[in-house]
Simulated assay, not measured.
Amino acid sequence: MSAIPLSVLDLSPVTAGSDAATALRRSVELAQHSEALGYRRFWLAEHHFAAVASSSTMTLIGLVAAATSSIRVGSAAVQLGHHTPASVVEAFGTIDALHPGRLDLGLGRSGQRRKEATSTSAPERKSAPPEPAAEHEVDGLLIPKPFSLAGLLASPKLAATATALQIAGAEVPDFTEAVDDILALLDGTYVADGVPLSAVPGENAEVEVWIFGSSKGQSAQVAGARGLPFVANYHVSPATTLEAVQAYREAFVPSRDLTEPYVVVSADVVAADTDSTAYELASTFGHWVCGIRSGEGAPPYPDPATTPALTDAERAVVDDRIRTQFVGTPSTVADGLDTLARVTGADELVITSVTHDFEARKRSHELLAREWGLVAAQPA
């Protein structure tokens, strides 16, 4: 099996019939479990006004870091449209001061993407979009047709969320400028209005900066130009992962911390002792994604025992995500991940796994860790 590292991305999902407090306790427990199994990193996602308990991601990162001892902990990713660079650096600097050398500061541009989509002039909005690429396979890896974000970005709830998360009249910063400000604050070279400012804590913190992206656009370009590691989101946008990785590598300029491109690719997985069990556990994944893509935000993760099958119309909305999820026995899942790593040239993979049954979720991580050959996961 591939020797590249394996990490965990946790969405801190609230499951049907449960609550946010339980989801948060489970995130801490899963982090401890992942550390014991030998996973390299434990990243937490930022989502708001949805059945996801990691909305205050930086707070939760601090709690997870305090409950673990060696695994790297980070964000996947801080949405810079909702935070100032100073607040991000001070928050991560605070955690690093107590848990030095363990933090990954992942950055994303979600807020700016929505601003660009809604501020485009009317004539440009009416122009015909390019024809999406046809579904195809690359050396065994499924590359589906792109999913259109137009409906999601036009969601009234998404607009209301943006309003709630920003101070009235505030402008979403340019992603490139925000990243540069964060790097300057960490390096101690930040200047505002001609005045040098030092983030305390934050300056000289042992924090690794990462860029997350789903396309060949600004995120991939910034990561490459700044010589930062890049995370390509196959679990979010499987249609554009390969072009994102290629764009990052083509734009890469060696930096003080990174002499060559470093790529992590994400994947949705569910592993179980049998294929039938795994598919039953994963049977409501499509319902969950359908809620997200409707613009209403992630619903409480549905219970397979009480949830009817997707309708044909619902299935069409999430078909690309269902068919690019890696589900089955540990060997089946690991083979799929090995193909993903080989085709993308990933230096590392990060898995996200959501099931209604938390013990089954922990078991999925354990089975995969053993199959992948993580040292700590080997039986005595």
Rank of each mutant, 00 (worst) to 15 (best):
S214K: 09
S214Q: 14
G217Q: 10
Q218H: 05
Q218E: 15
A220N: 11
A220F: 10
V222H: 01
A223M: 11
G224P: 10
A225H: 14
G227I: 12
L228I: 14
L228K: 13
L228M: 12
P229G: 07
P229Y: 06
V231L: 12
N233D: 10
N233H: 11
H235K: 01
V236H: 08
V236A: 13
S237Y: 12
P238Y: 01
P238W: 05
L242V: 12
E243H: 09
A244Y: 10
V245L: 05
V245W: 07
Q246H: 14
A247L: 08
Y248N: 11
Y248V: 13
R249S: 07
R249H: 04
A251Q: 11
V253G: 01
P254D: 10
L258P: 03
L258Q: 13
E260M: 03
E260R: 14
P261L: 09
Y262M: 08
Y262R: 15
Y262P: 01
V263T: 15
V265A: 00
V265W: 00
S266R: 00
S266C: 05
A267G: 01
A267M: 01
D268W: 09
D268G: 02
V269S: 03
V270R: 04
A271T: 13
A272I: 09
D273G: 14
T274I: 07
T274K: 03
S276H: 08
A278H: 06
Y279V: 10
Y279E: 14
E280S: 11
E280Y: 12
E280V: 09
A282C: 04
A282M: 05
A282R: 02
S283W: 00
S283V: 00
S283D: 01
T284L: 01
T284N: 03
T284H: 02
G286K: 04
W288R: 05
V289W: 11
V289E: 11
C290H: 15
G291E: 03
G291S: 07
I292W: 12
S294P: 06
S294E: 09
G295W: 03
E296G: 15
E296W: 04
G297S: 03
G297C: 05
A298D: 04
P299W: 02
P302M: 05
P302T: 07
P302A: 07
P304I: 01
A305P: 02
A305D: 13
T307F: 03
T307R: 04
T307H: 02
P308Y: 04
P308V: 08
A309V: 12
T311P: 06
A313R: 13
A313W: 01
R315G: 03
A316P: 06
A316L: 09
V317G: 00
V318I: 09
D319Q: 14
D319M: 07
D320Q: 14
R321N: 12
I322G: 00
R323I: 01
F326P: 00
F326Y: 11
G328R: 04
T329G: 07
T329N: 03
P330Q: 09
T332W: 00
T332Y: 02
T332L: 11
V333S: 04
V333R: 06
A334K: 13
A334T: 13
A334N: 12
D335M: 08
G336N: 08
L337R: 06
D338V: 14
L340K: 05
A341W: 07
R342P: 06
A346G: 03
E348V: 11
